[in-house]
């Protein structure tokens, strides 16, 4: 216990952080909750001095019935369910491989960590350039000046070029590009955490496994993965949370239209929808969508925690 004399000092030290949190986090959260229940409320109308709104669940029903919302929810879910497992497994394998090698370990570690410190919009644009086909793609007899690096590689190996992101492209081609980008972008943080976990595992477990002639895959599955389980749980939970908030990656590749030229908004996500609602001056619906997203993340995280309680050792 801090003596009461000392308490004001403690509060003083905490004050800057508390003030910032209150102004920029707590107050907006309260406002978001309040606005979600205010129907036909417009922030702009406020300036004219006229505020008229009704209290009710109208925002939620409108959001839920909106076709855009349904496609955004589906996109978000798909991205989460595909990218989180794929990136986690890849990160685990890369971390284990990195941990096993001695030469160039530091250099490779740096290379794998680079995406983490690079601006994601910039990376998105590079990805777009790699998949971009320049020319008249949608026409019957396409006239093409560049297929993009990825298609060049496919063509080099004798495959047919794919319309990844341009006008007339397929939804799954769009998604594929997005998934590759998100997985690649999610790897460094996961590798870093898992590598940290690996170095903290006592080497004697591996020596003991060696004495007992344990095959490699069994060492990975029966020893490494269980001993890493706290880190894996952390990586998966934060991965899902980040996945549900996916937005910048799509802007980076497809621009603010959130989709290829012929089908804007096709790849919109929950967060994208919230920004759209804000842009069209509909704070009520944006707040309702934000609360729905919060609810989904909460439920998924609780499920994650429940599963990890059974699976995570110690």
């Amino acid at each position: 216990m801090v003596e009461s004399k000392q308490q004001w000092k403690a509060w003083l030290y905490l004050a800057p952080a508390i003030v910032l949190l209150l102004v920029f986090t707590v107050w907006p959260i309260i406002n978001t909750v309040a606005m979600a229940f205010m129907e036909d409320y417009s922030g702009l109308a406020n300036i004219g001095g006229e505020t008229s709104f009704r209290v009710g669940l109208g925002n939620f029903t409108k959001v839920a019935q909106n076709a855009d919302f349904q496609s955004a929810l589906r996109n978000t879910m798909l991205l989460c369910l595909i990218t989180v497992p794929v990136s986690t497994v890849l990160a685990l394998l890369i971390a284990v491989a990195l941990h096993a090698i001695k030469p160039l370990q530091k250099a490779l570690q740096t290379i794998f960590f680079l995406p983490y410190v690079t601006n994601s919009i910039a990376i998105g644009m590079v990805f777009a350039a790699m998949f971009n086909v320049i020319g008249s793609v949608g026409t019957r007899r396409p006239l093409i000046s560049s297929y993009g690096i990825i298609n060049d590689v496919i063509r080099f190996f004798g495959g047919n070029w794919v319309n990844w992101i341009n006008s007339g492209s397929d939804y799954w081609a769009n998604m594929f590009v997005l998934i590759v980008y998100i997985v690649w972008n999610a790897l460094p943080f996961k590798i870093l955490i898992l590598l940290g976990g690996l170095t903290s595992i006592n080497k004697q477990y591996y020596e003991a496994a060696k004495v007992d002639s344990t095959p490699r895959w069994r060492v990975l599955w029966r020893i490494t993965v269980p001993l890493l389980s706290p880190m894996l749980a952390y990586v998966i939970i934060t991965g899902f949370i980040a996945g549900f908030k996916e937005y910048t990656s799509i802007v980076g590749i497809y621009g603010e239209s959130m989709g290829p030229v012929h089908a804007p908004h096709r790849l919109n996500t929950m967060v994208g929808l919230i920004y759209d609602s804000l842009a069209s001056n509909n704070q009520g619906r944006a707040s309702a969508a934000a609360l729905i997203l919060f609810g989904i993340i909460l439920v998924v995280t609780l499920i994650n925690l429940w599963v990890s309680k059974k699976r995570v050792h110690y």
Partner: peptide, 25 residues
């Protein structure tokens, strides 16, 4: 068979699983 100074028992396995581990290999 090797007994390590700090035993190196797998912490996530039960005693039975620890003892059976070499046989499963």
């Amino acid at each position: 068979g090797l007994v390590f100074q700090n035993y190196a028992l797998y912490p996530h396995m039960t005693v039975k699983q620890n003892i059976m581990f070499p046989l499963e290999n």
